[in-house]
Amino acid sequence: MMDALYSAASGMTAQQTSMDVVANNLANATTSGYKRDRLDLVDLAYQPFQLPGGGTGQVGLGAAPGRVNKEHEQGGLQNTGRDMDVAIQGEGFFQVTRPDGTLAYTRAGNLQVDANGRIGTPTGELLQPRIQVPAGAGDLTISPDGSVTATVAGKITTLGTIQTASFTNPSGLLAAGGNLFTASANSGAASLGAPGTAGRGPLTQGTLEASNVNVGTEMISLITTQRAFEASSKVVMASDEMMGMANGLRR
């Protein structure tokens, strides 16, 4: 009965973690460039026991959260008509420099020009390599290959080129919040290049990549998780009642 109590309690903890993952996915269902989290549960160790007939068996000791993986499937493209909005069609990440000087990567292409004319994200990260937009520039154009041009003093001028980063294992990237990822030993080092080359997707101006969260799928996961948590809690209560009955037999 103690094993049943422990297994059920571990199941409740695992399902609570699963609920946290589902809640985060639903909270980011409309976040540009967000990639869905998936929690993989694992079964815990098994304990051998003697069967009445003389054989042996194994009984499991519950479940535990294994790993939370990011699913990097392409999100839908939303047409915004805004010159500074750009989406990657296919593989790749925008490379940005954080305020502390470290590099990070994002799929959210809702770019902006800061007070110094530098292109970056709404939260202050700057596009890397840096691209400067002169004061008074107009008709900014971002080509599928990443080339950025604008009309400056009546002439079409090339301002720079947006490069995108690809990884051997994008699932190994670490989520850093703010729509950002950082490289890790599992993801491998970033490989920079022009969009549309070496497997990197081309850019589309005037669009944003939506979150790849499917609200319907998450609602099904929510209900399933809730039912599993409820069932585990009933096992805890039943095990507690049985232990109480067993202890009463000794009086």
Rank of each mutant, 00 (worst) to 15 (best):
T149C: 00
A108F: 01
I156K: 15
G188A: 10
N110M: 08
S233V: 02
M1D: 07
Q16K: 11
Q132N: 13
A87V: 05
R250D: 03
N179W: 00
G76Y: 05
M12L: 09
L41Y: 03
T149G: 03
D3V: 14
T80F: 04
G154D: 11
G75H: 06
L249A: 13
G109I: 08
S32W: 05
I131T: 03
N69S: 12
E91N: 13
G160I: 08
A238P: 02
G57Q: 11
Q128H: 13
K35N: 10
D114E: 11
P52T: 07
T225D: 07
A8M: 04
G117M: 01
E73M: 14
I223P: 09
T13H: 09
V236A: 12
A194E: 06
M12R: 04
N186Q: 15
R251P: 05
S221Y: 07
G172P: 07
T157S: 12
A135D: 09
G11H: 03
M243V: 12
V133C: 01
M1Q: 12
V152W: 05
A8T: 01
Q74R: 11
A238E: 08
Q205W: 01
Q47P: 01
K234R: 15
L249H: 13
A64T: 14
S10N: 15
P202S: 08
R38M: 03
S147V: 14
A23T: 11
I223N: 10
M242F: 09
A29L: 12
D139P: 00
A87S: 14
G120F: 09
A165G: 02
E241W: 06
G244D: 05
T225P: 02
T141C: 07
A153V: 05
N247P: 09
G154L: 04
E125L: 06
D100H: 05
A9D: 04
G33A: 08
Q74Y: 02
M1R: 03
I88Y: 05
M84W: 04
G248T: 09
Q112N: 12
